[in-house]
C-alpha cells in the first residue's frame, strides 16, 4: 500500500508544472471559472455525503433531545398525559428547594473537587517515581494502570464487600487485629463519603500517573543535565524544571477529573446506592431518579439543564486556562 501512495506522490510532483492550467483568453477564463465552481459544488456534495451519518447522530442523539430537555424543564410534563403546561421557573425552584437534589448537588461538587485534589497531589510524585529507575518498574507501572481498566461499577461492588460493616469485612477484620472495634464504613454519612472518594482515588490514580508519565517523558533530558552541572539539587530540579514542564499535563488531568467528577454515577451508586440517606447521592443519580424513575420530567430536566451549564462553565474555564498557559510558555 505504501508503494502505491509513494508513486502517487512522485506522480503529482512530476505533474505539478503541467496540471495547473493558466487560462489565456477571456473566454477560456470564464469557462475555467465555471468548471471550477461546478467542481466545488460537486466536492461540497461528496463531503456532505460523508458528513451525513454524523449529522444524523448529532440531530437524533444531541440536538433534538437537548431542545426537548430545555422545553420539559419549563413544563409540568409527566410522560403520561400528553398535554403539558408551561409552568415557568417552578421546576428550577424545586431543584434548589428539594433536599435530596441539593444533597446530591453538594456531594457531587465535594466529590469532584476532592478527587481532583487528591489524585493530582498523589499522581505527580507517583509518576516521577515510576519514571525513575528501580527493580520491578514495569510491574509497578502496569499494576497501577490496571486498576483503572475495569468498570468502576464492578470496582465499587468489590469495595462494598471490603468495607462491609460486619466483622468479616476486610477492613474491619484488619482493624480487629489491633483491637479496634468495627466501624460502620458505609452506613455512616461521613465515613461513606470518605469511602467513595477513597475508592475513586485508588481506582484512578494509575490512569493519571500514566498521563503524567507521558508528559514527563517528553521533557527534554538536557534540562536536567544542565541543572545538575549547575549544582541544582533533586528537589530544586523538581520544583523548577519538572513542575513547570508538567503544567499542561496538570491542566489536562485536573480538567478530566473535574469533568468526570461532576458526571460521576457508577461508583457511588454501586458502592453506597447514594446512601446512607442522601449523603452520597449524585446529580446524575438524581436526574435519572426523577426523570426516568419517578416520571418527574420537569424537575429532572431542569436539573439536567443546570448541570449542562455547570459542565460548560468548567469546560470553557479549562479551555481559557489552557490557552493562556500555552501562550505564556511559548
Amino acid at each position: 500500500m505504501m508503494t502505491h501512495v509513494m508513486s502517487a506522490v512522485t506522480r503529482i510532483k512530476g505533474r505539478s508544472e503541467t496540471s495547473d492550467p493558466t487560462p489565456g483568453t477571456v473566454d477560456e477564463k470564464s469557462l475555467y471559472k465555471k468548471r471550477k465552481r461546478r467542481q466545488g459544488l460537486r466536492d461540497d456534495l461528496t463531503s456532505f455525503w460523508f458528513l451525513l451519518p454524523i449529522l444524523a447522530v448529532f440531530v437524533i442523539l444531541f440536538a433534538v433531545p437537548l431542545v426537548q430537555t430545555l422545553i420539559y424543564s419549563f413544563t409540568d410534563f409527566n410522560g403520561y398525559s400528553m398535554n403539558m403546561h408551561y409552568v415557568g421557573w417552578v421546576n428550577y425552584q424545586k431543584v434548589f428547594t428539594d433536599s435530596s437534589t441539593l444533597q446530591g448537588l453538594i456531594f457531587t461538587v465535594i466529590y469532584a473537587v476532592l478527587q481532583t485534589i487528591f489524585i493530582t497531589v498523589i499522581a505527580i510524585p507517583l509518576a516521577v517515581t515510576l519514571n525513575g529507575k528501580f527493580f520491578g518498574r514495569n510491574f509497578a507501572r502496569s499494576m497501577f494502570f490496571f486498576f483503572s481498566v475495569p468498570s468502576m461499577a464492578i470496582l465499587g461492588l468489590v469495595w462494598r464487600y471490603i468495607f462491609s460493616p460486619m466483622k468479616t469485612g476486610l477492613v474491619n477484620s484488619f482493624l480487629g487485629l489491633f483491637g479496634i472495634d468495627s466501624l460502620p464504613w458505609l452506613s455512616n454519612s461521613h465515613l461513606a463519603q470518605g469511602c467513595v472518594i477513597f475508592v475513586a482515588v485508588w481506582a484512578q490514580i494509575g490512569w493519571h500517573a500514566t498521563l503524567y508519565l507521558a508528559f514527563l517523558q517528553s521533557i527534554p533530558h538536557d534540562l536536567y543535565e544542565q541543572a545538575t552541572v549547575d549544582g541544582a539539587s533533586k528537589r530544586q530540579q523538581f520544583v523548577h524544571i519538572t513542575l513547570p514542564q508538567l503544567v499542561p499535563g496538570i491542566v489536562t488531568s485536573t480538567f478530566l477529573l473535574m469533568n468526570g467528577g461532576l458526571k460521576v454515577y457508577d461508583l457511588p451508586f454501586t458502592l453506597t446506592k447514594g446512601g446512607p440517606g442522601y449523603s452520597t447521592y449524585t446529580v446524575t443519580q438524581s436526574i435519572i431518579q426523577q426523570g426516568i424513575g419517578q416520571s418527574q420530567y420537569g424537575v429532572g430536566s431542569a436539573l439536567a439543564v443546570l448541570f449542562t451549564l455547570a459542565t460548560a462553565v468548567v469546560v470553557f474555564a479549562q479551555m481559557g486556562v489552557a490557552n493562556s498557559i500555552s501562550r505564556r510558555f511559548q
Binding site: 466545488g40 466536492d43 461540497d44 461528496t46 463531503s47 456532505f48 460523508f50 458528513l51 454524523i54 449529522l55 448529532f58 442523539l61 444531541f62 433534538v64 433531545p65 437537548l66 426537548q68 430537555t69 420539559y72 461532576l262 458526571k263 446529580v283 446524575t284 436526574i287 435519572i288 426523570g291 426516568i292 420530567y297 429532572g300 430536566s301 439536567a304 439543564v305 448541570f307 449542562t308 459542565t311 460548560a312 469546560v315
Partner: peptide, 28 residues
C-alpha cells in the same frame, strides 16, 4: 476533503455535541 462555510459550521456544531454531557439528553 473540503473546507467551506458548510464544513466549518458542522465543526462548530460537533464541538457543542462534544461538550454536552450525556445526562442532559438522557430523559428525552
Amino acid at each position: 476533503l473540503r473546507k467551506s462555510v458548510f464544513t466549518s459550521a458542522i465543526g462548530a456544531i460537533l464541538l457543542v455535541a462534544f461538550v454536552v454531557p450525556g445526562q442532559a439528553t438522557l430523559i428525552p
